[in-house]
Simulated assay, not measured.
Amino acid sequence: MSDLGNTTDDERFFLHSGRRWRKTDPSLPEDVKARLMSHLGRGRSGVRNSAKGDDGTALPRARRTVQLAKEGLGERGTPWWEQSAAERKARWTAALEELDTLHAKRSAPPAGDAARKSPSDA
């Protein structure tokens, strides 16, 4: 990974609807970027859909997912061009670990479900 401290504003930001947005960290490995983008998409979808039967936890969880994914991508938090290569890697690693944990809790079957299945159900 190279030092990104000398990047220009054109490399750091883009304009959309008259607003300046931070670009994704260009040093992200493609597989890491793909995983973070997947989490971001799920989080945004969760924010949109949380009003439908929200039990009070769906919206905060979806917003946390979006925040973590954006931080991992370098679009929020400390600007990626101000971080060392090690700090950037630590940023996306921590975000992915928390996102994977957050979604593992959500998608894990309730305790006891596996025990109730008969061998013929497998």
Rank of each mutant, 00 (worst) to 15 (best):
W81D: 05
R61I: 05
A85L: 10
R64S: 12
A34W: 02
G112I: 01
R63K: 14
V47T: 01
F14W: 10
D10Q: 11
V32L: 03
K70H: 11
V47H: 00
D121C: 02
L28W: 05
K33F: 03
P79G: 07
R12Y: 04
F13T: 03
T8H: 08
R63H: 04
S120Q: 13
S2L: 15
R35N: 11
L96W: 09
A90M: 06
L59D: 03
P29D: 13
G41V: 06
L96T: 13
G18K: 05
R12G: 07
L99G: 05
G18R: 05
K52H: 13
R35W: 04
T65N: 11
T78L: 07
V47C: 01
E82S: 12
L15Y: 10
D10P: 06
G5M: 05
T101Q: 14
K70N: 14
T65P: 01
R76N: 12
P109D: 00
P119H: 04
W81Q: 08
S45P: 00
R116L: 11
S118G: 13
D121S: 07
L15Q: 12
D113C: 01
L102V: 07
L15R: 11
F14S: 04
K117C: 02
D3N: 15
S118D: 10
D100N: 13
R76Q: 14
S2G: 10
L15M: 12
W80Y: 15
V32D: 00
S118P: 01
